[in-house]
Design a protein around this nucleic acid. Sequence first.
DNA 1: ATTCAAAATAAAAACGTTTTTATTTTTCTT
DNA 2: AAGAAAAATAAAAACGTTTTTATTTTGAAT
Lengths: 355, 355
Amino acid sequence: MQVHRARRTPPPTIKTLAEMTGYSIATISKALRESPVVAPATRDLIYKAAREVGYQANARGMALRTGKSFQAAVLMPVTAARYYEWDGVEYTQTLSGISQALDGTDYRMSVHIIRDAADGAEAARRIIDQGLADGLIFSGILAEDPRIDLLVGEHFPFVSMGRCRKDLDYAHVDIDNEWAAHAATARLIAGGHRRIALVNPERRLSYALDRIDGFVRAFREAGLDAPMALIAEGDLSTHFGRQAVIDFLQVDDEPTAFVCINESTTLGVLSGLAALGRQVGVDVDVIAYDDINVSAYFTPPVTTFYQPIEVLGRTLGHFLLRRMEGEDPKALRQVFRPTLIARQSDDLGGRLNRT
Amino acid sequence: MQVHRARRTPPPTIKTLAEMTGYSIATISKALRESPVVAPATRDLIYKAAREVGYQANARGMALRTGKSFQAAVLMPVTAARYYEWDGVEYTQTLSGISQALDGTDYRMSVHIIRDAADGAEAARRIIDQGLADGLIFSGILAEDPRIDLLVGEHFPFVSMGRCRKDLDYAHVDIDNEWAAHAATARLIAGGHRRIALVNPERRLSYALDRIDGFVRAFREAGLDAPMALIAEGDLSTHFGRQAVIDFLQVDDEPTAFVCINESTTLGVLSGLAALGRQVGVDVDVIAYDDINVSAYFTPPVTTFYQPIEVLGRTLGHFLLRRMEGEDPKALRQVFRPTLIARQSDDLGGRLNRT
DNA sequence: ATTCAAAATAAAAACGTTTTTATTTTTCTT
DNA sequence: AAGAAAAATAAAAACGTTTTTATTTTGAAT
């Protein structure tokens, strides 16, 4: 026989406070909202009563009346298929950052898993139409991202992690991918490398283009033609990184260095190199981009451009809050430059012919 | 000058449908809830009208009236500090699994980041008190987890990923850690290993005890004493895994094999071994537990017990749905046994003295 | 003291549902 | 054909807020 606990007294509402203090619920509501029309003395009285009974505004009541949901939605891309389980691991840190920004506000974070870009657009549509959230954060920005057009058109508050290639006003946070790719490539060129491979995401992703731009610029500045044939394009899985290496090392004029786009692919690249018996730092150089500081533990540790992604997350959250307050998106833009963490020399220990 | 779009027509409500069909809102509501009191003919009519205008029940209205939030809360542990950025990466897959289970229901997934166990208990408290969610999923179960007592006491629907050591009725999903640790250890013992190290989480975590149990049982069954001094305890960071190796390899009678608890530590262990010049499969054997299938890409690939964590996530979600429907938690328990993926022989290529 | 404006508070309506209670319509029984 | 029971529908209340409108109180000016 299950013993049921005595029904707990229902949580206090503004009605409770009205009865306690003798004021009307209208006054209670205004007092708690810090409305200037209520006399300071009564406001204090009401606050005292609220504290006394531990009053917490009922989110559902507020939501219905105001039409707000007090939810900040985050679209989180997860590839369901095998080979991809390591994908998106950095989202743990991203969510943590966003949540930190939301802490202490009335907003909660709801996470919507999306399978691909189309799914993401549909999720955005649903969130707007059904008022599932008051603001939206998403990443994986395409060069021509329909979500950005949609949200800008609807005047729906959002912050994107990444920039699209259209000239629109929207709040965003990004990594300076052009700069990072340029810096990495230039460093390898300075080390004497000429055959440099770029392991890149698909070209429809906006930052894939940014990376290519930086890659090409580094060669141009050195008076060289960029080896466009050495740009591998694919999903950013570990499997892809590994396959890219295997493919490249089977052509005649094989690359002597790799620029990797994220940790997942980097791990794959290292795995591929190991499988083919190539030693990093001896036969080939690798320079990577890192956002959860894990490259230090790879074998061997690789030189990276590091940008803690939690910081991006925090910024995303803060920007979204301000955007939901109605702030002009023009003011809400930040592009981070990762810092170089050199863990290896990039000239194969000096064995490479310098020009 | 910003051009504002014409105010969009407000979304249809049951009132809209009432006007369209001529029925009262009460009938509309009942029809949509499939209540048997409304005549089938009218139900059909009302459904038709609803489809016509694309009616979607307003979540806020429902929430206020029913007192439900239609949120499934997930507590997601994230260690903020440096050294821990790789921690919890498997949560991407976990969330994906949960979300898959929730797909097509009225429930949304809200994620609450927690910093530690105490933070988790506080979050649970807040979720119950403020009715922030109708159900809860959490992991990182302690041997004596206060959250489980709390939630069982409050009759709040929840599913835990992992079991505590108390004999309580609650829905849960778990890995058979005792079995896995036993299998891994027994395999190494069969390979001739005697000095086997267990890289384990802190002992207050319930599954840390399970692992120790399995570890000890494997030795006992072989007629040996388990080397309790070779059990390293710490957070599950990459940093910890590396440090554990470095510590162990500086003692006299150093271990010849390592059993690792998760991928983060495994990566650390491999990093530590590489740093000390030990070759896996030559000087030392490593067997690991893997939930996002990444160990295949480590250098060298390591033998693992693999359990795709997304499957656990899906089960968690399904169990929570059933629990929120009021189903007896006794029926909602599942313990998964990971499958062995042998990527190396575990007797150092036969070089180890067999007993 | 009266009047009027300003300040403070109260009342009422509304947000979109569900549920309880009331009413009307239909069907069956005799 | 009348009456009662059953079925179908409608009306009203409620969930906890915020906001608009109405009322009361206060204070100052005459």
